[in-house]
Design a protein around this nucleic acid. Structure first.
Lengths: 153, 153
DNA sequence: AGACCTTAGTTGACACATCAACAATCTATT
DNA sequence: AATAGATTGTTGATGTGTCAACTAAGGTCT
């Protein structure tokens, strides 16, 4: 049996494959959301707001999306310009807005969601459920390790 | 047993977790390569060129990196400006360049690689090798399905 | 040779992402 | 109450990514 070189180690390959698959998934989702002229990030914003009808502050969105606060500004700007959400003043904290879906935004996200869940099922194509559960567990473990090695954000 | 809602399906959660873990991994790698003032994409370019000493065309790089050709232009521009690689005219096809590492680029990537492989091992932290192999297989299967559902690039 | 199609790379317009620096506001401590 | 420190959101600079439209060059077909 030949000595393994660093470049061919399974663990190294696994990280590459993970990035590659995620890239493919992201591209697929970009293609998918194009029908409604949304980017995956824009969809994520609408989806989060839909789950939180009282509205979220921009900093909350940035934490949930693992994204810098300054990026939320532009994302919310563009969605607000399209009338899908609105910034509402927050009397409890005058530094922060409450961002909420408009009626149009709520209507759009509710139109998308069924297709979205269906697509998420389809791409697994008979993949055994138990195996999917294992995958989730493994990915979570890796995430935890990564955060241990590279702590701050 | 309660009927599962779409949002709680394991398969849907698995896709979210995949994106989340990949994001974390990407952020960790951004942090990692910062020591050499490189972005992950810049590292990938240098790494590919290091594996292919005869040089690659930009279109080859774009395919390997799953990235639009126009993006390679800027990526190569910046690395060329730093003297890490060079565009060489290609007599066999005067439309295309051959992009190769300079001595400085070769020296830099060879300084980075040992740390890189070590980090890739470290983040798995005693994760069983067999399980890693399974993960790679599962991710490949998902990738294949994704390309079936969302064909073109 | 000429006509036609394809391919490699660049450019410009735009979205998306980071960071640093700043203003406005909130909070804690004295 | 005053000061000091932290937090929210915006802005500007820069890098990264997409796409459409363009030039230059290659390939094919008659």
């Amino acid at each position: 049996m030949s000595k393994k070189t660093a470049t061919s180690s399974t663990r190294y390959q696994a990280l590459l494959q993970l990035l590659r698959t995620a890239e493919t998934l992201w591209n697929a989702s970009r293609f998918f959301f194009d029908r409604w002229d949304l980017s995956p990030s824009q969809f994520n914003v609408l989806n989060l707001l839909h789950l939180n009808p009282e509205g979220s502050t921009q900093i909350e969105l940035s934490r949930l999306l693992i994204m810098h606060r300054s990026n939320i500004t532009g994302l919310v700007d563009r969605l607000e310009k399209r009338g899908l959400l609105q910034r509402k003043d927050n009397p409890k904290d005058r530094r922060a807005y409450k961002v909420t879906l408009t009626t149009a935004g709520k209507k759009l996200i509710e139109k998308i969601l069924p297709d979205y869940y269906q697509a998420a099922e389809n791409v697994w194509d008979n993949f055994p459920e138990a195996r999917t559960k294992q995958l989730v567990g493994d990915l979570q473990k890796l995430s935890a390790n990564l955060e241990k090695f590279f702590p701050e954000r």
